[in-house]
Design a protein around this nucleic acid. Structure first.
Lengths: 174, 174
DNA sequence: ACGGAAACTTACGTGAACGTAAAGATAAAG
DNA sequence: CTTTATCTTTACGTTCACGTAAGTTTCCGT
């Protein structure tokens, strides 16, 4: 009557070991299961491999991190999911590289090829990020300039009201 | 037969003096008339004042600049038009201040009040911009780190292939 | 004065990115 | 083993941010 057994303390409910269910992942990332399924549906996320369709999706820690990264990029770059998908071939390539690097039975030629490809994708991302960053920096500069002017005017008014004339430059160091 | 009179050389077609029509503004800003009307419709842009509804909208240079700023903020901050609207009370306040500042028949008290209010709005914008900028900077840093690692690995491979062992550190300065 | 380009209003259509509901299967808990 | 919370698929609904079409009106050039 008072304990309300409907709340199981939000225990992660891990399906043995390190894998999380979609609901937990969603809570963890501040999103919803639907969104995660949707991203998988449009090919932004790889389909949970070898899952007999009907079975629950399970996410490893690395997969969760990938989803987090996807959402972060979406948020920061503000691109459509379609653009993001093409951008994320970079991530896939990098994952490929990592996978291939682990088992070193691949010839250096193939290895170099993969790495170079990944590098190209990284460069594309970097270019996009740098462009946006510089735009934002410019905006920030403009805003802080405007702010300075506003503050100067306020100080001028204050000074004129009490001291009859605006002080030379800095009076209150805030 | 060859001049094709359907193209009037894209002359701005100014309705006397400095004002532009909505189509010109749209072309200028790389958008469409519909978008501009829509922004006005949802209150993002002020309704063209004293226009007998049915008459063509005319935009002064300052109004065009405002629209440009709105679109820039939308692009850079990636917020919804609704959020942007609340954010833009800042712009309105600043416009108010500028208007009041021009005719100095307002008492310093009111003036200070307006300025302080505007300052608050600017600060809100600045906070948002700075937050995003720092996030982006972090992402950029991570990406360039990853890039470095990838390049190192590639150089390692190249060296192993031709020279049999990777050179100590810097070999090709690119 | 007038013919046509461009703008006006109104209203319905659309794609992206999910939300939500239904009906049934699965996994975790008792 | 049974309950129950969570997940499954399927499918339709929704909001945002405009696009588009239709029918009318205003403006600019000649």
């Amino acid at each position: 009557m008072s304990v309300n057994p409907t709340q199981p303390e939000a225990a992660p409910s891990a399906a043995r070991s390190d894998s999380l269910r979609i609901g937990d992942v969603a809570r963890l990332l501040g999103t919803t299961p639907r969104t995660i399924r949707y991203y998988e549906e449009i090919g932004l996320l790889p389909e949970a491999p070898a899952r007999p369709s009907g079975q629950h999706r399970l996410y490893t820690q690395t997969e969760v991190e990938r989803i987090r990264e996807v959402m972060r990029l979406k948020h920061l770059l503000g691109v459509s999911l379609e653009e993001l998908k093409t951008l994320l071939t970079a991530e896939e390539a990098r994952a490929e590289v990592r996978a291939q690097l682990r088992r070193d039975d691949v010839d250096p030629g193939r290895r170099r090829e993969l790495l170079t490809q990944a590098l190209g994708h990284i460069d594309r991302q970097l270019e996009l990020v740098r462009h946006r960053a510089s735009e934002l920096a410019k905006l920030e500069h403009e805003l802080s300039e405007t702010r300075k002017r506003a503050r100067r005017k306020i100080r001028g008014l204050d000074a004129a009201e009490e001291g009859t004339f605006p002080p030379s430059e800095e009076m209150t160091p805030l």
